[in-house]
């Protein structure tokens, strides 16, 4: 078996019941799987369903195991490997706080403009930028902000959805 490490984005539709997130997380920690990012929110209040998007890494055999193990959890409705299924959109949101003055402040604002980040809070010597995009784009932006007075970052982790008309 090939043992190349792959990165997969997996969407999991679950019943929004107490403990469901603990089940998913406990599965990953208990079996030694990686979590690169994990987001969860209710997506169907009527049927009380939440969607968990988890980005994980592992060999193809491990990825297959992760999906099978997730699917085995009683409150899980569906597991969908977006990476495997083909074209999909991945987005992440970041709030980035930069504290600086003078040229650095101007430069931060200029780069934010290039990256289409918006200013959601400002004081005389700070900005909070809001930015949405792919993980790489966020990483690049954060890296550029480092020398310009970066003090705080909050990121949502990846959410993802398949392209085309098919629903999960």
């Amino acid at each position: 078996m090939e043992s190349t490490i792959e990165r997969h984005t997996i969407a999991v539709l679950v019943d929004n019941e107490p403990g469901v997130l603990a089940r998913v997380i406990g599965l990953f920690s208990g079996r030694g799987y990686n979590i690169e990012s994990l987001t969860v929110a209710e997506v169907d209040p009527q049927d009380s369903r939440s969607r968990i998007t988890v980005v994980t890494t592992g060999t193809p055999m491990v990825i297959e195991q992760i999906k099978a193990q997730l699917d085995r959890l009683v409150p899980v409705h569906r597991v969908s490997d977006l990476t495997m299924q083909g074209p999909h959109v991945e987005r992440e949101l970041a709030l980035v706080k930069v504290v600086s003055s003078g040229d650095k402040r101007v430069e931060a604002l200029r780069i934010a403009d290039i990256f289409r980040a918006s200013v959601v809070d400002s004081t005389i010597d700070s900005f909070v930028f809001e930015m949405t995009g792919k993980t790489d784009k966020l990483n690049a932006f954060v890296k550029l902000m480092e020398p310009l007075g970066l003090v705080d970052i909050s990121r949502t982790g990846v959410v993802a959805i398949a392209r085309g008309k098919e629903g999960m």
């Binding site: 055999m61 297959e64 195991q65 699917d71």
Partner: peptide
Amino acid sequence: PSSINKNVH
């Protein structure tokens, strides 16, 4: 299904 390909292909 999680028993399939867990240890042995």
